[in-house]
Structure formats: structure tokens, C-alpha cells
Design a protein around this nucleic acid. Structure first.
Length: 494
RNA sequence: GGGCCGUUAGCUCAACCGGUAGAGCAACUGACUCUUAAUCAGUGGGUUGUAGGUUCGAGUCCUACACGGCCCA
């Protein structure tokens, strides 16, 4: 790489630091006390008039973002965590005025002084003393354009945050969203727990796991792909309402809606079924949206989304069939395979029509239903074949009590009346095992310890998982999941 | 996995049909007592992502690879 220009600038800054030390500045002070934050000062003196001076002594610390030297006076814009404020330096009143030349854009400084408004009305600190807090050894990105290279924005997010304060907004909303969700669940009497990330048998979802190794036990473990099976063990143990907010890891590709590590909220509520959970989702989302935005409608990428309860519900099998133009019962397997052979002749190694029925149903859903649902919608009552952890529907054959909330073609959650029949659960696992042996690496593994727990008896329970990142995308109008994850997964570039 | 696009100074971007790689910001020197993308004068900074190939001559054309973006199964 061509680094001469960078090296020159870095050397220059190191030399400036040495000269500041020689002039009596402490190079790396241990602490600072910013008595005031830029934003609160801006707010406090909003009504002041150009030319007005105040007596209040203030101390402000921040990063030098711009610097305008005009000979005997200079202006700098300081940026702290809250915002920006201008500082004014005068040679006549500052002993160390000449040292200002050795400060660089990006350095952190602390200034003391009084406040006034310039003739153009900008709130400014009339500096009476200043000191270095830390030197920046590298030049800042373009002060006007910021960082536009997406690769650089993701790899060096701190630069993006530093020069483009708007970058922070989705992450602030993310934090508030999670805080509000906690408040909502805590108020309902839920208990927040933490379960293992390292699992001997990764369960609760169809996904390929990451594998790691524990040296002392000399055993391979997997990073969890879901929170489900451990939270259910807690219901067996006697908790009646638990939730966890945590990271899942899935060893899959990346896309605008997939990052290999992502955040999930899962809850389990004893005594409830999936329809109770459905109401909770509607109500919780309405509560959070109202707290965040004042209403239950938001705009995502130009589309207005209405989260006002109740959200529309569509039946999985009925709606897939309707949209695909299938006139027979979707669960009539021989007819469905015939139809697929005609209408979807493709397939990777094996024609789709000859693949396991679960693959076919998932494919049809992925083609004909999910991508076409824009408004918040509950897809209800999935086929049994693709729902090995959900209990059978109380009145319909071949389907389970399950729903998935879908928005803008994205699955943002998943919920069941949880399967608590240990014998049925064993049979479901065995069916999954058969798929696994036939080559489906994403089929569920049989978790004997979980089955043991179920055999002690899990009371009737409703469960839910929500994809936090995707919901935050919707709330913040971001087109990619990578824009709501501070440090998305990147391939090392060396 | 496939297709399209991108990768040029620290940052943001130019460079016509293949003909000596430029600008703004940042940096350096100087001027300047209300600037705010400060301004003005001057200076330095490049293995054009990597490796090959075609050519008298390659940032530009070809091949492979790396990283990234968008779209598709």
C-alpha cells in the first residue's frame, strides 16, 4: 500500500505532540471533568442574542472537528458525545496561544471559559484556558463527505460515528427499543434469564451451527442457533414466564436481512397458547412504537407500515395455495409433488418434487407468500412437517399451532403453542433425524437431555422468538441489517 | 453458487478512442482579530487492490485472484 502521505501526516502529529509536551502540556492526562455538554449548553442559551456575553464559567471537552485560524484569533468546533460547540481563542488573552498550531484535527481538548454569541449568533466558548486530553495520530476522514465507502464504514465504524453523527441514530433507537421491550415484559411479570451460548447439541432451529472446542474437557461445542430448548427447561423447572435477549449464531450466508450473529428475544409463558402470544406481540409492538414515535405507523423505505392491532392473519397452507394457484389441499402430498414437478421443475441435485415434503413446503412459502407480505401480517398454522417443536393444532389435521409475524417480506418472529407431549416430541426428533441422515444438515438434532426434561412435564406453554435486528431495521428505516449492527461480520482484509 | 458494478493520495472524487495520473478536503510554509465546508498565496504527497498477459506504450484492454456493494436462485 502507498502510505507515504499517511506516514508523513502521522509523523507530523507525533512531532506536534512532542512540541506540546515541551511547551508544558501533559500528553496523556488521566481524567477530565467536562462540567458541561455541548448539547445542554446549546439548549440553555438558545434564546440568547448575537453579541450577548454571559458570566457563567464552563468547561467543555471534545474532539476538534474543524479549526479556523485567523492570525490573532482562532475558532475551533469541538464535538462531544452530545453534539458540537464552538470555541474562540484570542492571542491577547491566552499565554499558550502559539501552541494552538500544534493541535490537529481529531485531537481531544478541554477548554475553560465563558460563553458568548458571535455576531452571526453562534454560541461560543471564549477560552481562558485549554489543555490537551489526547492526541489523534491519524488524519480524520473528509470533514464534509465523511466516510462513504461502505466497507470502511463497517470495518471502522468508529470513523463513521465520529464524522457522521447521524450514524448513531439507529443504534440509539435500537437501545431504546430493547429497553422498552424489557420494561413491557418485566411489567407483565416476566423474569429475564441467561442460558448457555456454548451447547453440546445446538437445538431449537433449523440451521447450521458454528463449532468450537473446549480444551479442558477436550470436547467440541456449538454456538447456539436458538434460545428455545434451554428456556423450555426453565418452564419445566417451575418458572412460569421467562425471557432472554441474546445472540444467536448461524453458519449461513450474508444478505440484507442476514448476519451470522444476530440478536433474538425469546419468551416462554406457561398457561398460555399461541393466540395469547399473538396478542402479546401486537400489544407490545404497539406499546413500543407509541413510546418511540407517538403512533403505530412508520415508513420503511417509502412504504407506510401500519402496526395498529389487530394485524391481518393469513393461513399458511390456504394462502400459499391461493397465491400459487393451487386448487387442491396443499397438504395432499401426492398431488402437491405432481404440481411441483410441473410448475417448479428445478432443484439443485434432486428435483424439488422429489425432495422431502418439508423442503417443498418451505420453498413454496419462500416463493409465493413471504416476499409478498409487506404490511405486518401473521402467517398462521404451519404444516406439521416443518414445525417439529410446535404442538398439533387442536382442531385441524396436519398443521400446528404456530404463527410467524412477517413485515416487508421479512420473518420477524416465530411462535408456537409449545409441544409438551414428550412422546410426540421424541417422534418429531426421530423424523428430523431421518432427514438428517438423508443429508439435510439443517435438520434438528435429537437432544436426549431436553426430552428427559419434557418427560418430567412442561405445563401448557406459549413461546415466542423475535428478531431484534430486523425490527430495528424497520423502526429506523435502514435497508440493510448491517446498518443496525455496529460491527457486522466482515471477512478479514489482510 | 450465478450475474452486474466497484477498488486511483489519509478522506471524497476526476482522468475522452490506450498516449507524461489531477482536483477539493487533510498536511506543510506564509498572510489574516467574528470565522463556521473560513479565505488568500505557495509546497510536498501515487507500485492506480494483487499477480500475470496483450501493446512501442495500460489507471484504461484481456485472464485469474482478493475485498466490497447490489441483484438473483
Amino acid at each position: 500500500m502507498a502510505e507515504k502521505s499517511l506516514k508523513e501526516q502521522r509523523d507530523q502529529r507525533i512531532s506536534n505532540l512532542q512540541q506540546l509536551e515541551e511547551a508544558g502540556f501533559e500528553a496523556y492526562p488521566y481524567s477530565y471533568e467536562a462540567a458541561a455538554q455541548a448539547a445542554s449548553l446549546q439548549e440553555k442559551y438558545e434564546g440568547g442574542e448575537a453579541g450577548e456575553h454571559w458570566d457563567e464559567q464552563v468547561t467543555v471537552a471534545g474532539r476538534i472537528m474543524t479549526f479556523r485560524g485567523m492570525g490573532k484569533v482562532s475558532f475551533a468546533t469541538l464535538q462531544d458525545a452530545s453534539g458540537r460547540i464552538q470555541a474562540f481563542f484570542q492571542r491577547d488573552t491566552l499565554e499558550q496561544y502559539r501552541s494552538l498550531k500544534k493541535f490537529d484535527l481529531g485531537d481531544w481538548i478541554e477548554v475553560e471559559g465563558t460563553l458568548f454569541k458571535t455576531k452571526t449568533g453562534e454560541l461560543t466558548v471564549q477560552v481562558t484556558d485549554f489543555r490537551l486530553l489526547v492526541k489523534s495520530l491519524r488524519p480524520l476522514p473528509d470533514k464534509w463527505h465523511g466516510v462513504t465507502d461502505k466497507e470502511l464504514r463497517y470495518r471502522q465504524r468508529y470513523l463513521d460515528l465520529m464524522v457522521s453523527p447521524d450514524t448513531r441514530k439507529p443504534f440509539v433507537v435500537r437501545s431504546r427499543f430493547i429497553a422498552l421491550m424489557r420494561r413491557y415484559l418485566d411489567d407483565l411479570g416476566f423474569f429475564e434469564v441467561e442460558t448457555p451460548v456454548l451447547q453440546a447439541i445446538p437445538g431449537g432451529a433449523e440451521a447450521r451451527p458454528f463449532i468450537t472446542h473446549h480444551n479442558a474437557l477436550d470436547h467440541d461445542f456449538h454456538l447456539r442457533i436458538s434460545l428455545e430448548l434451554y428456556l423450555k427447561r426453565l418452564i419445566v423447572g417451575g418458572f412460569d414466564a421467562v425471557y432472554e435477549i441474546g445472540r444467536n449464531f448461524r453458519n449461513e450466508g450474508l444478505s440484507w436481512k442476514h448476519n451470522p450473529e444476530y440478536t433474538m428475544m425469546e419468551l416462554y409463558w406457561a398457561g398460555r397458547d399461541y393466540l395469547d402470544i399473538l396478542k402479546l406481540v401486537e400489544d407490545m409492538m404497539a406499546y413500543i412504537l407509541t413510546e418511540l414515535t407517538g403512533g403505530t405507523r412508520i415508513t420503511y423505505q417509502g412504504t407506510e407500515l401500519n402496526f395498529t392491532p389487530p394485524w391481518p392473519r393469513v393461513d399458511f397452507t390456504g394462502e400459499v395455495a391461493r397465491r400459487a394457484g393451487i386448487t387442491f389441499d396443499l397438504l395432499d402430498e401426492p398431488k402437491l409433488r405432481e404440481w411441483v414437478a410441473v410448475h417448479l421443475p428445478g432443484g439443485e441435485d434432486v428435483p424439488l418434487a422429489e425432495q422431502p415434503i418439508g423442503q417443498i413446503l418451505n420453498k413454496l412459502y419462500d416463493i409465493y407468500l413471504e416476499p409478498h407480505l409487506e404490511q405486518p401480517t401473521f402467517v398462521m398454522d404451519h404444516p406439521l412437517a416443518i414445525s417439529p417443536l410446535a404442538r398439533k393444532h387442536r382442531s385441524r389435521e396436519g398443521v400446528v399451532e404456530r404463527f410467524e409475524p412477517v413485515v416487508m417480506g421479512m420473518e420477524i418472529g416465530n411462535s408456537f403453542s409449545e409441544l409438551n407431549d414428550a412422546i410426540d416430541q421424541r417422534e418429531r426428533f426421530e423424523a428430523q433425524l431421518a432427514l438428517r441422515e438423508a443429508g439435510d444438515e439443517e435438520a434438528h438434532q435429537l437432544d436426549e437431555d431436553f426430552l428427559t426434561a419434557l418427560e418430567y412435564g412442561m405445563p401448557p406453554t406459549g413461546g415466542l422468538g423475535l428478531g431484534i435486528d430486523r425490527i430495528v431495521m424497520l423502526l429506523t428505516d435502514q435497508p440493510s441489517i448491517r446498518d443496525v449492527i455496529l460491527f457486522p461480520l466482515m471477512k478479514p482484509d489482510d
